[in-house]
Design a protein around this nucleic acid. Structure first.
Lengths: 345, 345
DNA sequence: TTGTAAGCGTTATCAA
DNA sequence: TTGATAACGCTTACAA
C-alpha cells in the first residue's frame, strides 16, 4: 500500500464502535443514535477519514462515475460538451471522467478499456471507431452516443440535424450567388460527414448543379486536419477553383482561413467560407465566421441526463434518439454583409 | 452488483486453471508456461474479460490514475494544460481524470474529496482555495500546483513569471506613450493576481507614475467575470479614464472588449488593451489581442512529469519549483501597429 | 441501536 | 510452473 490512509476500522476503534456503525453514519445516519453519531462524525473529522471509493465500488458495483470520451479536448466543441455533461453529472452526484482520444484510434480503444476496467457506471461518447460501440453493446454497457449515428446499435443518441445544417449552409451560399461551392468534409467513414455530403449534393442537385469531383475533399476534425485539402482546393486553376467553401467543422474552417491567407487571397472577397460549429469566444473578439452552430452544451446536458435516467431506471429504459436543429449565424466570412454593402451603394 | 461482469474466476474456470495463473498472465506473463498462457489469453478474449481496476487498486494501493483540477474547462488555458498533462500521463500508463471547478469553492472541495476517495495516485491542481492544499499536505498527498504559489506548502510548483510578465506588458504600454494604465486584475487573494499588481505598480513607480486607485479593479478569471469592473473603468469621466488596460487573463480581456464595444469606443484607437494568456485559435481567425503568452501546454507536460517522477521515486523526491518566462506577442489591440503607421505617415 | 460474519475481485505470500 | 489462502476496505444480511 502506497497510501496508508485512515480506514473505517481506524475510525471505529478511535470512536469505540464497530466499523458497521461508522458505515451507517456515512450512509444511513438516521439509523445511528445522535450521540454516537456526533462522536463518530467528530472522529472522522479529526482523523481526516475519507472513505475508500474503490472498496465501496467493489462491493456495490457502482462507482458513481461517468465517462465522457471526446475527440479533441482543445476543440471548443468538446469543452462545451464536457461542460454541459459535467454540470448534470455533478448535480446528480456523479463524477465525470474526461477522456481525450486525440488523433489515434488505438488511444480510443485503450481509453474505453480503462474506463470499463474502472467500472464507470456509464459512458458518453462523442468519437471513436465503430468496433468500440459493438463491444460495449455486447456488454450492455450504458452508453449515450453524441454526434455520430450508427445503424443497428441499440443505445441512446444525441445528434444534430446534419442534413438540414448543410442544406442551410449550401442554400445560403447559393442565395449569395455562388455556383462553385466546395465541401471540405470530415473522414469518409464518419456518419456525420456522410450526412453532410448528402445534404450538400442534394441541395445542389435541386438547383441543377453538379459539383466538380475535386470540390469534395476529405480532412480530419483535428487541428490542422484540413491544411492539405484546403491547399489543394485553392491550388486549382482559377477557372476551376470554387468561389465558396463549406467546412465540416471548426478546425477545418481554420485550415481554410490559413490556406487562403497563404494563397494571398481574401475571405470573403475572393473565397466565401462557411462552416459547422462555432468559435464562440473568438466571435467576441471578431465576429467573422458564418456558421451553422449546434447547441453543443445542450448535447452534453441532455446526453448526461439520458444516461443518468437509464442508470436510475434500468428496467424502464428504452433507446431514444434526440435530434437538435442547428442554427445559422451569418457573419462576415460568407460575404453576405459585403454583398449587401455592394448592393446598397 | 449492477455489472455482472466476467471475473478472473470465470476466466480461470473456463481455462481450467486457478485465478492466480490468470492474474500472472495479466501481470507477469513470463512466469506462465507458454501453452497455458496462450489458452488463458484466448479465454480472456473469448469471454471479453476486463480486469476490475477497483479490486486491483484496493489491493495494490495504486490506481494508476492522476487527477487534474482546473478552474474552467471552457478556458483555452485549461484545455492546453489538460492536453499537455494528458499526453504525459498516458505515455506513462496513467489515466488522467479531469475535474472542473467552475465558479464555486464548494465545488472545488467536493471535487478534491471525490478524487481522494477514489485514491488517485496524485493530483495536479491549477485552481482552488488554500485550505485544500493544507489538507492535502497534511495527508502527504502527491500534489503539483500549477499557476498559483503558496508559501509554506511543501510541494512541487510549476508557474510562470507573473512579475516579469506584467512588467513587460506595462513597459510596452509606457513605450507606446500611455500614462494612464489600468489593471483589470483577478481576485485579491489570488497569488498570481498579487504578483501582477506588484509588477504593475513597480514598473509604473520606476517611471514616477502613481496610478489612480480606480484604475486597479478586481474581477474573476471566469467568463464574464470582468464585465462589471470593465464597465466601471470605462464609465469614468474622460478626464480620469485610463487610455490603456491590462487584463489579468484572457476572459478578463474578453470582458474589456465587450465593454468597450458597449461604450461605443474602439480598441486600440480609444483604449489600448493588453492581457495575460493567449487565445491561440482566435488569433488564427484574426490576430488581434496583444498578450503575454504563457507556455501553458508545457506547464501541463512538466507538472505531470514532476508528479510521475515523484510517484516512481517517492524516497528521492524533493519539492521543486519550475518557473517559466512568458512571451510578449504584439498584435493589434495595444495600438503598436497603429502608432507605427501614424509615425511613418 | 449496534455488532458479527461474509464476500466483492483482485494480488502477495507461501507452499507444492 | 502452478495453486491455496489471506487480505485490501467496505457494505449487505442477519443477529443481538
Amino acid at each position: 500500500m502506497r497510501n496508508n490512509a485512515v480506514t473505517i476500522q481506524d475510525v471505529a476503534a478511535h470512536a469505540g464502535v464497530s466499523a458497521m456503525t461508522v458505515s451507517r453514519v456515512l450512509n444511513n445516519p438516521s439509523q445511528v443514535a445522535p450521540e454516537t453519531r456526533k462522536r463518530i462524525e467528530q472522529t472522522i473529522e479529526e482523523l481526516g477519514y475519507f472513505p475508500n471509493a474503490l472498496a465501496r465500488g467493489l462491493l456495490t458495483g457502482r462507482t458513481e462515475t461517468l465517462g465522457l470520451i471526446v475527440g479533441d479536448i482543445t476543440n471548443p466543441y468538446c469543452t462545451a460538451l464536457a461542460s454541459g455533461a459535467e454540470e448534470v453529472a455533478h448535480r446528480n452526484g456523479y463524477s465525470l471522467v474526461l477522456g481525450n482520444i486525440g488523433n489515434s484510434a488505438e488511444k480510443a480503444n485503450r481509453l474505453v478499456e480503462t474506463l470499463v476496467r474502472n467500472r464507470v457506471d456509464g459512458l458518453l461518447i462523442n468519437a471513436g471507431p465503430r468496433d468500440i460501440f459493438k463491444m460495449l453493446m455486447k456488454r450492455k454497457y450504458p452508453v449515450v452516443i453524441i454526434g455520430p449515428e450508427f445503424k443497428g446499435i441499440q443505445t441512446d443518441f444525441v445528434t444534430g440535424d446534419n442534413f438540414y445544417g448543410v442544406q442551410v449552409l449550401t442554400q445560403h451560399l447559393l442565395n449569395l450567388g455562388h455556383q462553385r461551392i466546395a465541401l471540405l468534409n470530415g473522414p469518409k467513414d464518419d456518419s456525420e460527414a456522410i450526412q453532410r455530403e448528402r445534404g450538400y449534393l442534394q441541395t445542389l442537385a435541386e438547383h441543377d448543379i453538379t459539383p466538380e469531383p475535386e470540390w469534395i475533399v476529405e480532412g480530419t476534425y483535428w487541428r490542422g486536419g484540413g491544411d492539405q485539402p484546403s491547399a489543394r482546393l485553392l491550388g486549382l486553376p482559377p477557372s476551376h477553383r470554387p468561389t465558396a467553401i463549406i467546412a465540416s467543422n471548426n478546425f477545418l474552417a481554420l485550415s481554410v482561413i490559413e490556406a487562403v491567407r497563404d494563397a494571398r487571397l481574401r475571405i470573403p472577397e475572393d473565397i466565401a467560407l462557411v462552416g459547422f460549429d462555432d468559435f464562440e469566444l473568438a466571435s467576441i473578439i471578431y465576429p467573422f465566421l458564418t456558421v451553422i452552430a449546434q447547441p453543443v452544451r445542450t448535447y452534453g446536458v441532455q446526453a448526461a441526463q439520458l444516461l443518468i435516467d437509464r442508470l436510475n431506471n434500468p428496467e424502464k429504459w428504452q433507446p431514444s434518439r434526440l435530434v437538435f436543429t442547428p442554427e445559422l449565424i451569418v457573419r462576415i466570412s460568407c460575404g453576405a454583409k459585403l454583398q449587401r454593402t455592394v448592393i446598397s451603394s
